[in-house]
Simulated assay, not measured.
Amino acid sequence: MANTTAADVKKLRELTGAGMMDCKKALDEAEGNVDKAVELLRIKGQKGVAKREGRDASNGAVVSLLEGGNSGVLVELNCETDFVAKGGRFVEVANALAAHVAATSPADLDAALASEIQPGKTVQQFVDEANAGLGEKIVFRRFAQFTGGAYVAAYMHRTDPDLPPAIGVLVELDQENAEIAKDVAQHIAAFAPKFLSREDIPAEALDAERRIAEATAREEGKPEAALPRIVEGRVTGFVKENSVLEQAFAKDSKKTVQKVLDEAGVKLVRFARFRVGA
């Protein structure tokens, strides 16, 4: 049996992200051959991929990649535990996916998973290898990409200083303004709007809110004559809560986000907000 050193184990861990004891066993079985040990870990890891399919991957990281000031990518990669989420190998995988999306601009997640990230290797296979190496269910959950805009910026928020960012926001403005972009992105991170403006809220969502508001008002015994006013008031409240432009601005609640943008002479074109597991 080969004499496995701590340096050999460290090197194998860096290459695969596998646990220390798994690396030690693989090196022993491979008689000290690192390349063969990598193969053994991949084989053993892949056997466990199917078993992990049903597990909950609610931890993870959000990463961003900005290019040239007018393009940006946001990626969410999930895993099972915060222990894996804060590991260097996991974050490397997330960053590699962000770089791949930036370079290839896939149409959607299915297209991204089917595309080649390395010669002869799809993104799905790449993620499966991470699954095998890290010993947990790893899921490329979603991505957002803004390209060709006037100015694109990102804000990343850590909910725990020991973990990678759990909330990421990508914003596109119609002109460069780093301060406003940061302020608005931070606001979006904190207040989680679902839509850009009232016009972006689907009609069916507003109709559903009206039905709920009317039924609730009747349950509360409100007068029939007052129902239209009450219903529209509650729908307006729903719009203000869910449309970023109509929300009260985080740094000055006397102003809406729209007012802050107007005063700065810029327009928020679009945004994306990811929160790990949400």
Rank of each mutant, 00 (worst) to 15 (best):
L77K: 02
A112C: 15
G277H: 07
K222F: 03
E199T: 11
G133H: 12
R198C: 01
L227S: 10
F140E: 07
I138Y: 00
Q186P: 04
I117N: 09
Q124I: 03
E214D: 10
E179S: 09
I138F: 03
L113K: 08
A272Q: 13
T122C: 06
K222M: 13
L12I: 12
A96L: 14
L261M: 00
V75G: 05
T122K: 04
V75H: 05
G88Y: 11
M21Y: 10
A190I: 03
Y155K: 00
G88C: 05
L97G: 04
V73D: 08
F90H: 09
G149C: 01
G133A: 12
A37M: 10
L27T: 09
D262N: 05
L27D: 07
A37Y: 12
G48S: 15
D22I: 10
K194L: 14
D110R: 08
V276A: 04
N177M: 07
E29G: 10
T16H: 13
E76G: 01
L15W: 14
K11P: 12
R52D: 06
E92Y: 12
D108C: 02
Q124E: 11
A102R: 14
E204A: 11
V244S: 00
E116Y: 08
G133C: 13
A61F: 06
A111D: 11
A114N: 10
G32F: 05
R229N: 15
R55F: 05
H100V: 08
E76Y: 03
A96K: 15
L65Y: 13
D262R: 07
T104K: 14
A185Q: 02
V73F: 07
F146V: 10
I167E: 02
G277V: 00
V73C: 11
P228N: 07
A217N: 01
E209A: 00
H187V: 04
E219N: 11
K137M: 02
C79L: 06
L74C: 03
N177E: 05
A185H: 05
A225K: 15
R52T: 04
G69I: 01
K222Q: 05
L66S: 04
E204Y: 09
D108Q: 08
R141G: 03
A248E: 07
A213W: 08
V49G: 02
M1C: 15
A190K: 05
L196D: 06
F191Q: 08
D160K: 06
K240P: 00
V91F: 01
Q125D: 12
A189T: 04
E76L: 02
R42G: 09
E263L: 05
S71T: 10
